[in-house]
């Protein structure tokens, strides 16, 4: 029989610590598939964040560095600049990247660092137990926004991809959703393109993956994906915001 789907070789053959139905696992597989497809496993150096993906290094079969909270783009910069031949990717959540690491991500993009950032946006702090993130939707409940996020009190959620797409050094910026077979297929394409952008030396690349957090959202995994499509996508539209060919594409 012909194999239609095989587990990517760049993933370690072990079980993850993620909750059942958590889309981190899907994002991990897509990154590993891109590494496999491009044949870059022996050049890949990942940077793990602080957050649920802190142990990402346990799941990829490539070199890794674990970074302080929000500092992954700076650590990735240090790696890429000292080993220019490497393929460097950071894997960061929304608290890590959009809150405490906002300066680092903006300036990595400004410098056009030839790194690839996988930005997992599930609109909440997962590891610490469901606190409000900069990406939490208005009205969405969190343990530190028990009545739902109020715009008057803490502003509107940050649209990271749109913001980074204004930066000339950002060569490829796309937002995808890990919420359905069709969207996951598009995410696979985007992640591969982001790595290709780095390989071509064209600049900074980032793929924002709208993701679910069934545990902290208090929903089943499938229900969470429906909630993502109904609530997150209207505020966080999908598409490529910047490509090496030029400015805003289909956003």
């Amino acid at each position: 029989m012909k194999q239609v789907y095989s587990v990517p070789k760049s993933l370690q053959p072990r079980s993850t610590h993620y909750c059942p139905g958590c889309t981190h696992g899907i994002a991990h597989k897509l990154v590993a598939e891109a590494i496999d497809d491009l044949g870059i496993r022996d050049r890949a150096i990942g940077v793990a964040p602080v957050g649920c993906a802190v142990f990402a290094y346990d799941y990829f079969d490539c070199d890794f560095q674990q970074a302080a909270h929000g500092r992954a783009p700076a650590v990735a910069t240090g790696i890429k600049r000292s080993v220019p031949d490497s393929v460097v990717f950071s894997y960061q959540g929304d608290g890590d990247l959009a809150s405490i690491g906002a300066a680092e991500i903006v300036h990595a993009a400004m410098r056009g660092e030839r790194i690839t950032v996988i930005f997992v946006n599930n609109a909440i702090y997962g590891m610490t137990g469901g606190q409000m993130a900069p990406t939490t939707l208005v009205g969405q409940k969190a343990t530190t926004a028990p009545f739902g996020r109020q715009k008057e009190h803490c502003g509107s959620p940050l649209r990271v991809s749109e913001m980074l797409a204004t930066i000339p050094g950002a060569a490829y910026v796309a937002r995808v959703a890990l919420s359905s077979p069709g969207n996951v297929a598009k995410a696979k394409t985007a992640i591969r393109k982001a790595f290709e952008t780095q390989l071509a030396g064209e600049g900074f690349s980032l793929v924002e993956c709208l993701s679910t957090c069934p545990t902290n959202w208090g929903m089943g995994p499938y229900e969470a994906m429906s909630w993502l499509e109904e609530n997150m996508i209207p505020y966080y539209p999908l598409g490529e915001f910047r490509t090496p060919e030029g400015g805003p594409n289909n956003a």
Binding site: Q3, V4, P181, A185
Partner: peptide
């Protein structure tokens, strides 16, 4: 139908799919 959707959506890399 060996479409592979189950494997693609599995977060835990549990599934491999084959087509006769």
């Amino acid at each position: 139908i060996s479409c592979g959707i189950c494997a693609r959506m599995c977060p835990d890399a549990v599934i491999e799919v084959f087509k006769p």
